[in-house]
């Protein structure tokens, strides 16, 4: 189910980032379906000066102070020849930072070749950073998993396990104790910033849960807005399974069990479920224990060191 987007359109960029960056398309409206296939953005300074070798034509082109000033200072024949050449290379769009106003000739070329020009009030560096971060997020691998994502004591916990093992009930119990629900049942995972596995609530399901015997409940209206959030980095995975007498469950916790999610290794805690076991309490404990490990303290190892030391004394 793992998937990776290969391209986004200029329109998708405007829909996704337009409000935050106050993007405004001023020309080349017929080119809004052009696709962006690279996560990086480019500043086309050298190409504007006439050097086209290795020009990053698949990238969004950001025009800042230098480029805009340069365009003003070249002759109009140079202007139309160079910009015209760039626009025929099927670049996705231009973004002009600092709300600079483009020359009428630039606008005319943009309409002629249907390459959108987008104006943005932000300074160039901010436009470059924000846009590349957004693009990187779009191109990062993603997948869907069956489970519940919660924030427990600040830790992102993905609770997985077979159908009707009690994931939702356990999550409800955690919410009742003041923890936070991100998403129930189907959680979208994305690799963000190349190192975090981030889980997102599903927009259709929102913060609804289905509890056998009761039906669909709305966590936000039952427990308040404090009990929900939209996304969370995943710190560890809890796998719930029916207690099996012949299975050897973790007794020490000295070694970390790991599970692979989107190519990243995430600690995995297997918790057997049987009537009378307070699974929510166990997950709270696991969360605190993982938090300690993250801070460099491993209770099991620490205990073992003490044990070895006391044996040496004898």
């Amino acid at each position: 189910m793992k998937s990776e987007k290969k391209s986004v359109t200029v329109k998708e960029l405007l829909d996704g980032l337009g409000d935050e960056m106050k993007f405004k398309v001023i020309s080349g409206f017929n080119g809004l379906q052009r696709s962006i296939t690279a996560a990086e953005v480019n500043r086309p300074g050298l190409a504007l000066a006439g050097y086209y070798e290795h020009f990053a034509k698949h990238r969004l082109q950001v025009l800042g102070l230098v480029e805009m000033d340069y365009l003003k200072n070249i002759s109009s024949s140079e202007h139309s020849e160079r910009l015209g050449r760039l626009m025929q290379m099927r670049i996705p769009a231009f973004i002009i930072a600092r709300n600079f106003i483009p020359l009428p000739e630039t606008v005319a070329l943009s309409n002629k070749y249907n390459v959108p020009i987008i104006r943005a009030p932000g300074i160039t560096m901010r436009v470059v950073n924000k846009t590349s971060m957004w693009l990187e997020e779009q191109f990062s691998p993603s997948t869907k998993v069956h489970g519940v994502l919660m924030e427990v004591y600040g830790m992102g916990v993905l609770i997985t396990g077979k159908a009707s093992v009690g994931k939702s009930e356990c999550a409800l119990s955690l919410v009742e104790r003041g923890h936070i629900l991100v998403g129930d049942d189907v959680v979208t995972l994305k690799l963000t910033e190349g190192m975090f596995v981030t889980g997102y609530a599903n927009p259709t399901i929102g913060h609804h849960m289905e509890i056998r015997g009761i039906g669909i409940i709305n966590i936000q209206s039952l427990y308040g807005v404090k009990s929900i959030r939209m996304w969370k980095h995943i710190d560890f995975v809890v796998t719930l399974e029916e207690w099996q007498e012949d299975s050897n469950y973790e007794r020490l916790g000295i070694d970390n069990n790991l599970i692979e999610l989107l190519g990243m290794e995430i600690p995995n805690v297997l918790i057997p479920v049987k009537p009378g076991r307070d699974v929510a309490l166990l997950i709270e404990t696991a969360a605190q224990n993982e938090k300690l490990k993250k801070l460099g303290f491993n209770a099991a190892r620490d205990f073992n060191e003490h044990l070895i030391a006391s044996m040496k004394k004898k």
Binding site: K144, H146, A163, D184, D185, V186, N202, T204, I205, H208, M209, E210, I216
Partner: peptide
């Protein structure tokens, strides 16, 4: 999605 999960199907 898993067709045995109601939230999944509604999604």
């Amino acid at each position: 999605v898993n067709a045995k999960s109601i939230m999944g199907v509604m999604m």
